[in-house]
Nucleic acid binder design. Structure first.
Ligand code: MN
Ligand code: MN
Ligand code: ZN
Ligand code: ZN
Lengths: 143, 143
DNA sequence: CGCCTTATTGCAAATACTTGCAATAAGCAG
DNA sequence: CTGCTTATTGCAAGTATTTGCAATAAGGCG
């Protein structure tokens, strides 16, 4: 399976697979949702009180860099992370009601193609938050 | 002229045009570039040492909310602001060499139209930073 | 299994930015 | 111009996240 294969490859690259890293990765892998650093810290330290919040932050950064996690700023005061499962997607966030929708990656792929064509720039917008007004709030405003 | 008209309209809405607000707005209006909160603070406090850093942060938020400033996260550890002159644009930022390019708004307008059509969502991506690899760094990598 | 190298952690301090609250000063009326 | 209301400021404390450094522990080797 890809997951364990990736993990072993990281060890070959000189990274160390510490208890802290595995705990955080497994939590996010089983959680299937966005989580913030302090939520992760709260969960993990339940069973492993020795874990440190600074380590959580550093581990999240590392897991993101090696491509195992995705990161997003949904306009709250905290960043959110999710396990990088196969389905690439982005989020539409309504500034009025706060509603969040997932949208498929190919909407953005067209943009990527345009930018590559016109500017020779290879944009890699991974897991983006787009703000605006949702259909319902737009309808409500035309009352 | 539009600028002074906008300013007077704000007063009518109950906002107060304080010395601090005008100083920061004029600095950015004449600067024609992105500036960070602490750069702005350094500049303004040169001639007005009584100004407070918290006020700079609050004023930047307010100027952004009322549409006089644009805001951007270019991946450094600070947010940047610029005067909202007419030319709407976005930035391509190379993760390899750090190079920043401006791109015209209409590249993103196509994306906006697609999202509106498919999801009924009115996205308002104003002054966005797109990360990736620039043409030069891509060429260099195929050596 | 024990030893060694060094990547990673824990802890405490720092940084960018936000916020509660009492003091100040816009700006409108008189 | 003077007084009054209350939006805004200054200051100090708080929050999310980062960072320097000494202590710890992965994991390769014998
Ligand atoms: Mn997501
Ligand atoms: Mn700009
Ligand atoms: Zn909505
Ligand atoms: Zn480049």
């Amino acid at each position: 399976m890809r997951h364990h294969h990736d993990i072993q490859a990281l060890r070959k690259q000189g990274f160390r697979l510490t208890r802290q890293r595995m705990l955080i990765l497994e939590l996010l892998r089983s959680s299937e949702r966005h989580m913030t650093a302090d939520q992760i810290y709260a969960e993990v330290s339940q069973h492993h009180p020795e874990i440190n919040l600074a380590t959580v932050y550093r581990t999240l950064q590392w897991l993101h860099q090696v491509g195992l996690l995705r990161k997003i700023d949904v306009g709250k005061d905290r960043l959110e992370y999710e396990y990088a499962h196969d389905a690439e997607h982005h989020h539409l966030i309504c500034k009025v009601c706060g509603d969040q929708t997932q949208i498929d990656n190919h909407v953005i792929q067209t943009l990527q193609a345009h930018i590559l064509e016109h500017y020779g720039f290879e944009a890699d917008p991974d897991h983006v938050a787009l703000f605006g007004r949702c259909a319902q709030c737009r309808a409500a405003e035309t009352e």
